[in-house]
């Protein structure tokens, strides 16, 4: 079972309004997938289809082989694929951090001692040990969002879907949350499906899927996807500033590769060129 998440020819409509059309998509165990697209392109619907909050109008979605339209499997599906939303305030249930993280294990009916272990593990994974007894509304946005991630982690999911988790955060909160997401992917092998509007975040993924008008417009590595600036802009997106700079430099005649997406790559390439020239 290589593909943890599998969409088979999935369409979804709200009434007569077609939101997604004929989507075929897979995410492998341990993969980091970024989903891009302008508002209204169907990204959030896609996310909600994964853990059975929505069920396809036609086609099938499988999570670890379980069909999301099978209601008897819902609890298992949601345990396997956890979900984090944009607004951290609206997904925290309890008035104390540890009680909030305990919410899902409590719902699963686990033993208090097992819940305690899971809460402690989850809070450590997001680096908020010091705040375990705090009231969530006293935390910063970035901290709240990490509490939300810990709350999902406590289900010990194999996949986490994050729907614009950094949209409401400041740069510091954003980079801390992204750090946690990357770490969960690399160290715990958790499959990540990250919906985002920030190209720099998408550049960290293994693969990028771009939705446009309910269809998959692009599906490739960040390098492949970002090297076509005109295409990105026509899809209502942009390229990371470093790619923009690289493409400008190529336009000025410098011999660079056009698929540069990280600042360090560009500086290394330029320094190498300088040393060769001197």
């Amino acid at each position: 079972m290589d593909n943890l998440i599998r969409f088979e020819n999935v369409s979804f409509s709200y009434g007569t309004n077609k939101v997604l059309e004929n989507i075929d998509l897979t995410a492998g165990e341990g993969e980091f997938l970024a989903v891009l697209g302008y508002n209204g392109s169907g990204k959030s619907t896609l996310a909600k289809l994964i853990n059975g909050i929505l069920v396809p109008t036609s086609g099938k979605v499988y999570v670890d082989g379980m069909d999301t339209s099978d209601e008897t499997k819902l609890a298992d599906i949601r345990k396997t694929a956890g979900m984090v939303f944009q607004n951290p305030d609206n997904q925290i249930v309890a008035t104390i951090v540890e009680e909030d993280i305990a919410f899902a294990p409590e719902n699963l009916g686990l033993d208090p001692s097992e819940i305690r272990t899971r809460v402690d593990d989850a809070i450590r994974a997001v680096g908020l040990e010091k705040h375990i007894k705090d009231a969530p509304h006293k935390l910063s946005g970035g901290q709240k969002q990490r509490v939300a991630i810990a709350g999902v982690l406590a289900m010990q999911p194999r996949c986490i879907i994050l729907d614009e988790p950094t949209a409401m955060l400041d740069p510091k909160g954003r980079s801390l949350v992204m750090g946690v997401i990357e770490r969960l992917n690399r160290e715990k092998g958790i499959t990540i499906i990250l919906i985002t509007h920030f190209m720099e975040e998408a550049a960290l993924a293994d693969r990028i899927v771009i939705l446009s008008d309910g269809k998959i417009a692009e599906n490739g590595t960040p390098r492949q996807v970002f090297s076509d600036r005109e295409r990105m802009i026509s899809l209502g997106l942009e390229v990371p500033p470093v790619t923009e700079l690289t493409l400008d430099l190529i336009g000025n005649g410098l011999p660079l590769e056009k698929d540069i997406i990280h600042p360090e790559e560009l500086t290394e390439a330029l320094i190498k060129m300088k040393e060769a020239a001197v």
Binding site: A75, R78, N87, Q91, P112, M155
Partner: peptide
């Protein structure tokens, strides 16, 4: 949004819940 988030975290009413 909260109802949705609670559903995603397997909340299914008070029955069968344990406590930390």
């Amino acid at each position: 949004e909260l109802a949705l988030a609670m559903e995603c975290r397997c909340y299914n009413g008070g029955e069968g819940r344990t406590r930390l």
